[in-house]
Design a protein around this nucleic acid. Sequence first.
DNA 1: GATGAATGAGGATTCATTCAT
DNA 2: CATGAATGAATCCTCATTCAT
Lengths: 207, 207, 207, 207
Amino acid sequence: MAGKPLTKPRKKASQERSRATVDALVEATARILVKEGFDKASTNRIAEVAGVSVGSLYQYFPSKEALVVAVIGRHNHSTMQLVRSVLSEVADQPIEHAIPRIVAVAIRAHRIDPKLHRVLTEQIPRTGQLENVEAFNREYFTLFREYLANRRGDLRPVDLDLAAYVCVTSIEALAHNAVLRSTRLTDQEAEALVDEASRMIVEYLSR
Amino acid sequence: MAGKPLTKPRKKASQERSRATVDALVEATARILVKEGFDKASTNRIAEVAGVSVGSLYQYFPSKEALVVAVIGRHNHSTMQLVRSVLSEVADQPIEHAIPRIVAVAIRAHRIDPKLHRVLTEQIPRTGQLENVEAFNREYFTLFREYLANRRGDLRPVDLDLAAYVCVTSIEALAHNAVLRSTRLTDQEAEALVDEASRMIVEYLSR
Amino acid sequence: MAGKPLTKPRKKASQERSRATVDALVEATARILVKEGFDKASTNRIAEVAGVSVGSLYQYFPSKEALVVAVIGRHNHSTMQLVRSVLSEVADQPIEHAIPRIVAVAIRAHRIDPKLHRVLTEQIPRTGQLENVEAFNREYFTLFREYLANRRGDLRPVDLDLAAYVCVTSIEALAHNAVLRSTRLTDQEAEALVDEASRMIVEYLSR
Amino acid sequence: MAGKPLTKPRKKASQERSRATVDALVEATARILVKEGFDKASTNRIAEVAGVSVGSLYQYFPSKEALVVAVIGRHNHSTMQLVRSVLSEVADQPIEHAIPRIVAVAIRAHRIDPKLHRVLTEQIPRTGQLENVEAFNREYFTLFREYLANRRGDLRPVDLDLAAYVCVTSIEALAHNAVLRSTRLTDQEAEALVDEASRMIVEYLSR
DNA sequence: GATGAATGAGGATTCATTCAT
DNA sequence: CATGAATGAATCCTCATTCAT
């Protein structure tokens, strides 16, 4: 309709708008999930909260599931961020040093957005695409296994896969339950937990 | 008097026919849950599979939720049966003996009906009455703590609550994930897992 | 099973029992209607409150409707009792005397069980058998018309049917609304209303 | 914010299409009410007759009740239209002139859609939001009372509230019953009724 | 006669998704 | 691209009534 050939800026502008819409939708989904629970999170409601029409919602997400997957992804992403960074930090440290840090981070990770974490964990049916909530654990496992392999010398002889499974599963569960159980986990309690869990893991791995 | 949807059976299923109907309903619910998943478990479908009318369903269960609660209850019951029996068996045994048995039973318990366990765990929104899926863990915790208290002499000085939390949570998570992850957990794998987990817990508790 | 041929007493006893059951059912229906409203009045609930099984309910009443009809009948009966008695009392009295009495009784009649009256009037769909709630008015009309015929001499020349219609309808409506509107109609208010209404009717009929 | 079932339209039917849908729904409800009765008026049936999906119905009306309220509203509106217009017309006329006109209009008003009026009156449970069927009478009372106040000079000394109550109630009841009783009220009968009723009311009010 | 378990048609309502504008 | 009206299958649940015991 216009004259001169439009160039990137315009396109970029629209890309930016798209980006904003997508973000708004994911954000809205997360917010509703936290504040009203999974079954209040209808697509219409999400669109409304995002300030967008349902039609637009479906422009960017092919289904409600996709939206929830995005929320999970975003949440897992920030969680993994933390995990990855400790694991690379402690990569060359002995387990006595490393494990407490790892455990502490696990708890911190679960505290990022505990309410969202709870909803994601408790209210969302692990069905279809949503089964992949556990993708997170797989990566965690891989990273942790790498760490162990790297510190092999410190360890008693172990089946790395098995050991990693045992450690990751325990750490995750301890952090998860601790945070979910008492919405108000005090710092003291958290510290005590870190100590205990670390002691258990360290002893378990040590020769 | 009225208020939130009840969850308790509406009638004492004293008569025989009633009893049969109730059982058929719970059984049908479990079967559908396993074979078709939570969201195919509509009240009409459940009644149909149970060979009963929807009306009868509502004669005995005030809501769909109540039915699921009953299934959970039944499942937890048989699970706890096992747990309780080991814990009483090993009550006076030293941890080196007791823990492996406890861990082994945890796995065995999760293998009772792994598919049902998975659905209960993954697909059912922990909302309303359904939140109580965790009642199970509470009892487990209590029993385990009692055991520890009883064997206090064997242990290094510990905060019993904390130690019980750490042990129960870890054992549960290890068993749970092991069974859910690979639907076909071989006996060998199970054994290896029992060894590792037990070692971890025993060392953790020992002085 | 017993020896001597049983005679009336036995039969009477069972008749009495039937009578009691019927009464209990009608009473229960009325009570539920008043305390919980028409749509809480399910046949099962009625039977329960009557202390009888649903089966028995259907032994005595062919349908829920029949039960409600019975309640209406009972209510209209006691109402008509009053009306009939005043009308026969005042049969030979001049309208100046008679009308106030008639109006007063209309109000008293509506006050017999105002809550039931309201439910019967407002919540019960005048459908099928229930259409006959107005049977009451027909009888009232007839009796009143007879009174007017009897006192023809006192009246200005009127079409008796029309006059009776006007009077009965007005008196009924005034009493009805007065009682329903303010659940707490004071005696003073009632008196004032009787005066006004009577004045209107008397003047209307007088030559 | 949530709570009891809403009765107000969900959306301002600003768009044309919306408007048409809303109208179709209200119209369909009225038609079904008249032709099949209240208990055939299921939401699905209403939507079907309106040529609209149930979903759309719920887009505009939060409940079945709301739909009926709308029908009542529409009906009362046209009725009040008439009433208001006579009362303003006769505002300055003496009662001998005014009352007959008012009575005549009451009857005409009841004849607007007698079948609908009957259903609204007889079959709809005055429960919840539906209690307000009487809103109509309140307004009628107010307007009539104003008229009386304006013509105070013509009247014998009266308690205006009481007098208005007596007049409005009587006029309403007479018109209502006349129309409902004989679906085919002839013009002659209507005229006779107007004469009688007016005579009664006028004499009642005159000094 | 009494009992109460069983029936099942039917009703209100929701919500992911589509598509004409 | 955006909008939001429209869709309709699907779900939970109720209740008058029946009938085997």
